[in-house]
Simulated scan of single mutants.
Amino acid sequence: MHSILGCNHPTFALPWRTLLPSLVALHLLHLGSAQLRVVAPSRVVTAIVGQDVVLRCHLSPCKDAWSWDIRWIQHRSSGLVHHYQNGVDLEQMAEYKGRTELLRNGLSDGNLDLRITAVKSSDSGLYSCAVQDGDNYAEAVVDLEVSDPFSQIVHPWKVALAVVITLLVGSFAVIVFLYRKQAAQSRELSESFQPLPPPKSL
Rank of each mutant, 00 (worst) to 15 (best):
G6M: 12
G6K: 12
C7I: 08
N8K: 09
H9E: 07
H9K: 13
F12G: 01
P15Q: 14
W16Y: 14
R17E: 06
L20W: 06
P21Q: 07
L23H: 03
L23R: 05
A25M: 06
A25V: 02
L26G: 03
L28F: 04
L28P: 00
L28S: 07
S33A: 12
A34W: 04
L36K: 00
R37A: 15
R37G: 05
A40D: 03
A40L: 00
P41W: 00
V44R: 10
V45L: 05
V45Q: 07
V45G: 07
T46G: 04
T46F: 13
T46E: 15
T46I: 04
V49E: 04
L55I: 08
R56Y: 08
C57S: 15
L59S: 02
L59H: 02
L59E: 01
S60M: 05
P61Y: 13
W66S: 14
D69C: 06
H75V: 11
H75T: 10
S77Q: 08
S78E: 06
S78Y: 01
S78G: 05
L80R: 09
D89E: 11
L90H: 09
Q92I: 05
Y96M: 11
K97E: 13
R99G: 01
R99T: 03
T100H: 01
E101A: 15
L102S: 09
L103V: 11
L103Q: 15
N105M: 12
N105F: 13
G106Y: 13
L112C: 02
I116L: 15
V119G: 00
V119R: 02
S122L: 11
D123K: 01
G125D: 06
L126Y: 14
Y127M: 04
S128T: 07
C129L: 08
A130G: 06
Q132A: 13
Y137A: 12
V141K: 07
S147D: 11
I153V: 13
I153R: 04
I153T: 10
V154I: 11
V154T: 15
H155I: 04
W157A: 12
A160N: 10
L167G: 02
L167R: 03
L168S: 04
F172W: 12
F177D: 04
R180V: 04
K181R: 15
Q182K: 14
Q182T: 07
A184W: 12
Q185T: 05
Q185W: 09
E188S: 10
E191C: 02
E191A: 11
P199K: 15
P199V: 09
L202F: 13
